[in-house]
Design a binder for these strands. Structure first.
Lengths: 308, 308
DNA sequence: CGTTATCCGAAGGCATTTCCTTTAGCTGAA
DNA sequence: TTCAGCTAAAGGAAATGCCTTCGGATAACG
């Protein structure tokens, strides 16, 4: 089978006009080059150089071969550089898993940070739901992610970064009394997000468990996919909803007007963690993991301070 | 150093999703593929596949490498086909040496023949002079040629194909008597071609020798490069000239009007031969050699018949 | 016209690579 | 829990690649 080495020897010979010159250019002995070219000729079943006295004369076949040989070598060269570029995080795609509402916590800023530090990289934040992302992690399709606990997989490295508190959200100040209980939840007209993921979503399951203890099922009046949609509906007074303080914090000014919130009692928490498989992280993921960890912990501190 | 084999194994693995599948596709055992990919990873100093349970997941580096690896393999593949195409005379350039006045004997027809039989090839007929062409042959820059004898080189295969006769050409019928001798040549006002090659041109040397035997030098009044120019001058009556019957034969209707010719006595002949180095001829040259041989021999028969 | 320098090719030997088979360990699914 | 499928590791056989040395041929030079 044709080999790159043969092509290298061939091109050097073509360029320098003799095996000896090519050999010294490539740092080999002359018979080595000679043999490689002979092998190439044998494999191509043609004559590449006419041996005439001392000196070689390239044949038509050699002229035909030359450009393709160059292309092949250049491609291999380029391949090495492309991989190095990815390795050094100059180019390539950073793929990182996030829980669905991560955009309220960090999405835009995180992407901005990565793009600024590594111009040339693409960023891909994937994830509809923590459970789905965890599955991607386990299958190896993602290297790292930030998702809601629990993560029950001993092969994963789990680093908690933010604890968030579930709050009750309503447009009606009358319903925002100090201590909203599970019984209140069971009685309320609710709009809840994550319609497609209600079976696996940890928040939904936490809520369901708490409400069930009151003897009633959690039966939201409205179900939507998106947290923002749920908030919009709540803002119109059509129903109340439940969400994370971090979401309200992240929305800031963009929180639909007229909404207020109150804590649940007993409080319900969700812990988010950066998760990745054991072993080496690629530099790309390393960068994102570090950024996410720092940013989420900062957010955690900010939110706890505000509570106090 | 990166090798094509490694790239092949890598691509097969990428395509089939596992070492085992790639191995069976390439006809190797699994550990061979595994090792090649590991080697590739080591040389590129990166991870190409994340080993996750059973099955492999390509990394970003693998995605970066893939297109370049494909290009390299395709180029090598294409290289083989390009060479084969030359070998089978589908494309490429056929380079053939000819003596200067060959165009009167065969040039256009020869080219037409080659082009018709091998659409896709380029044809190059090189040669200012038989001596120069012979030098090209010896240096290996030409594979084969048709030139005037003598060829004193034991490494050359010489196949005589046409014997031509030198004739005296004039616009003045009075000077075209039956038996023109060397003395007549010495006395005549002559225009001779091959100004640049008079030292080495065999015809010129033959003429010079014959004239010198009469005690006079060969001192043409006019010297031009081109046989046709010499004939034009002769047609105007400015001087007489000497040329080969084959040239007149080949010119046919295009022979300048008013010119007549007469044989020399003793007759002077020139023999043209197809010449090439010993050993294998490339298919391209083989084709041309055969065409030239057939055509020149046909011409030879035609001219001898006309004499008889 | 001989001499010298240069280059290609062949042979023998050494080191490395490549591929095989076998075996063990791990993972995911029934 | 067992079974099937995959990767990884080890050891050995074969081939490949490279080196040095030598011989033959050619071109340049005195």
């Amino acid at each position: 089978m044709l080999s790159l080495h043969q092509l290298r020897c061939f091109l050097a010979t073509l360029e320098h006009g003799s095996f000896t010159a090519a050999a010294s250019a490539l740092g080999y002995a002359q018979p080595s080059i000679s043999e490689q070219v002979r092998l190439l000729e044998q494999q191509l079943d043609t004559t590449l150089f006419r041996r005439v006295g001392r000196g070689l004369v390239p044949t038509e076949a050699a002229r035909a071969l030359q450009p393709h040989a160059s292309v092949a070598l250049a491609a291999v060269d380029e391949a090495g550089r492309a991989v190095a570029s990815v390795r050094e995080l100059l180019t390539g795609t950073v793929r990182f898993g996030v829980f669905r509402t991560a955009r309220f916590y960090l999405a835009a800023d995180l992407v901005a940070d990565v793009l600024q530090r590594h111009p040339g990289v693409r960023v891909e934040l994937v994830g509809q739901n923590s459970a789905e992302v965890l599955e991607h992690l386990r299958k190896g399709r993602l290297e790292a992610a930030v998702i809601a606990l629990p993560v029950e997989d001993e092969n994963m490295v789990v680093t908690p970064v933010l604890r968030d508190e579930l709050v009750y959200v309503s447009a009606d100040p009358a319903r925002l009394h100090a201590r909203i209980t599970a019984a209140d939840l069971a009685a309320a007209q609710l709009v809840l997000p994550d319609a497609s993921w209600r079976e696996t979503d940890t928040t939904r399951r936490q809520l369901a468990q708490a409400v069930q203890r009151t003897g009633h099922p959690l039966r939201p009046r409205i179900e939507v996919e998106d947290t923002e949609t749920a908030l919009d509906i709540a803002a119109r007074g059509l129903a109340d909803t439940v969400t994370w303080r971090g979401v309200l914090h992240g929305l800031g000014d963009r929180l639909p007007a007229g909404l207020g919130w109150a804590p649940l009692r007993p409080a319900m928490y969700e812990t988010f963690a950066v998760v990745h498989r054991e072993g080496e992280l690629s530099p790309a993921s390393r960068v994102v993991v570090d950024l996410v960890t720092a940013r989420m912990r900062g957010l955690d501190r900010a939110m706890r301070a505000r509570t106090a």
